[in-house]
């Protein structure tokens, strides 16, 4: 069933995702304290920051799984948090998401996992679905693994399958949640290439949430750095490399000490040792 949000681009504007004045708190903890973000259409945007800065939460807010306390989030001109269930689901069909763990359905084979969105949301005949699945698996290099179970896959392979699944319905945007975490150099290299290639080949808009500075900066068109609920830096990767901000610099260079201190707050060292 097609809802009104499923039709292609309602406005052909440059910005696909527009976030203004976002405030979000979980319990007592303030996660976002007035954040403004623009995700340009057709480009690969990275959102980086220290652990716990709420990057995954941001993806959930964009996807409508959470609602902001204040502020607005617009995806393709639609205010996500105000959509009814049918419209929200219609929007989600145009967005692919890659979870950190891949989130493959463990009781289905690789083939069935990639076919899942096609079977759920389209009435295509099985023969056509088979062709589409094989094409998507070919794009990520795993066509030969189609009959394996998720438990038989390595972490990197699982993520590639999840990527194939995310592009199954030819979405307009893909969100990547920490795609490079815990990968060996080869898998990392494969994923990095794939993400950039797919973005360009399929005309996607990609959002990568990560704290792997080197890999992410290498393929991003634009970067936002978020810390303590605010955007502390933004720009192209080159511009950020020459930033004035100490905090952004410490993050980008991976320096152990700086605005984020090495020592956890403690009393004076000498006094601590001398007071038995």
């Amino acid at each position: 069933m097609q809802s009104s949000t499923e039709k292609t681009a309602i406005n052909g504007s440059e910005t696909l995702v527009k976030i203004r004045g976002l405030h979000y708190a979980r319990g007592d903890r303030v996660i976002f304290d007035g954040v403004d973000l623009d995700i340009p259409r057709g480009k690969l945007t990275a959102i980086m920051g220290p652990s716990g800065s709420g990057k995954t939460t941001l993806l959930r807010l964009i996807g409508g799984q959470l609602a902001p306390d204040q502020g607005s989030i617009e995806v393709d001109g639609l205010r996500v948090h105000e959509l009814g269930r049918t419209d929200l689901y219609g929007l989600r069909r145009r967005i692919g998401m890659l979870f950190q763990s891949g989130a493959l359905l463990t009781d289905l084979t690789v083939f069935d996992n990639v076919a899942f969105p096609l079977r759920e949301h389209t009435d295509l005949p099985e023969a056509m679905i088979r062709d589409l699945v094989l094409m998507k698996l070919q794009a990520v290099g795993l066509r030969g693994a189609r009959d394996l179970q998720p438990s038989e896959l390595s972490g990197g392979m699982a993520r590639r399958v999840a990527l194939a699944r995310a592009i199954a319905l030819d979405p307009m945007m893909i969100m990547y949640d920490e795609p490079f975490t815990g990968q060996d150099p080869i898998s990392m290299g494969v994923l990095v290439q794939l993400i950039r290639l797919l973005n360009d080949a399929l005309g996607l808009t990609s959002i990568i949430v990560s704290h792997d500075v080197k890999e992410t900066a290498a393929i991003s068109d634009y970067v936002y750095v978020i810390s303590e609920g605010k955007v502390i830096g933004q720009g192209t990767p080159e511009a950020l490399g020459k930033t004035d901000s100490d905090l952004v610099n410490q993050f980008m260079q991976g320096l152990p000490d700086g605005p984020v201190p090495f020592h956890y707050p403690a009393p004076d060292y000498m006094e601590d040792l001398l007071n038995a």
Partner: peptide, 17 residues
């Protein structure tokens, strides 16, 4: 376990309730 391995969230994001 499906919730812990984000399979339920994954389904939601694929617009399957």
């Amino acid at each position: 376990l499906m919730k812990a391995t984000e399979q339920l969230a994954g389904m939601e994001m694929m617009a399957v309730d």
